[in-house]
Amino acid sequence: MKRFFLTLIAAAGLAGAAHAADPIEGVWQTEPDDGSFAYVTIAPCGGNYCGTISRTFNASGEYESPNKGKQIVRNMAAQGDGAYEGRVWRPSNDKVYLGKIQLNGNQMALRGCVAGGLFCARQNWVKVQ
């Protein structure tokens, strides 16, 4: 009986570890871009990760942006050591770029690049949830 309970506890521990969220999952606050910033909710999509604009803010506070609900981080694949690669959409110019993310705790360095990654713009996001 004792062995049964120990096996059950060990199995429960392994099941919990298997369902642990990836560090990229959660709600992230963007840097201001053209005077506005957003909360982006990153979650699994297929075998990778995608981020959707869940709340938007400007100098007056929270507002209903037409970009709310749109996917800004697209198909980010984990590369190991907190690195991810995929695509990012910049709402202010409606362009999609090669995207690279590097996580460091509750900080995210996100880059949108052109020319195969030779020229990149960068934003630092902070995890809020």
Rank of each mutant, 00 (worst) to 15 (best):
Q71H: 06
M1H: 08
D22A: 07
W125F: 09
D94W: 09
A18V: 12
G51K: 02
A17P: 06
Y39V: 00
A20H: 12
E62Q: 12
I9N: 14
A115S: 12
W125D: 04
P91R: 02
V88H: 01
Q29Y: 03
G86H: 01
I9R: 13
Q129L: 05
D81N: 15
S60T: 15
I53P: 00
N48Y: 04
R3I: 15
P32I: 04
L98S: 05
Q29E: 14
V40S: 04
T30W: 15
V27G: 00
G47H: 06
P32A: 10
C113H: 09
G105Q: 01
D33Y: 06
C50R: 02
N106Y: 08
V88W: 05
N58T: 10
T7H: 08
Q29P: 11
G86W: 00
R87H: 15
G26C: 09
V96K: 12
I42E: 02
T7S: 11
P23Q: 04
V114Q: 09
T7R: 03
Q29V: 11
K100T: 10
F37H: 12
A10S: 08
T56A: 13
F5H: 12
A59Y: 15
K100L: 06
I24A: 06
G112L: 13
M76Q: 02
P91M: 03
Y39L: 04
G80K: 09
W125S: 07
A83C: 07
I24Y: 02
K127N: 12
S92M: 15
A43W: 00
R55T: 06
A20Y: 06
G69L: 10
V27Q: 06
T56K: 05
S36G: 09
A38C: 03
D94V: 03
G69P: 10
S54P: 01
R74G: 02
T41Y: 01
R87V: 12
E25K: 04
W89V: 01
N106W: 09
Q29I: 09
M76S: 03
V126I: 14
G80N: 10
L6M: 10
L98F: 04
T7N: 03
Q129C: 00
K2L: 07
G69Y: 08
E62V: 05
Q123I: 10
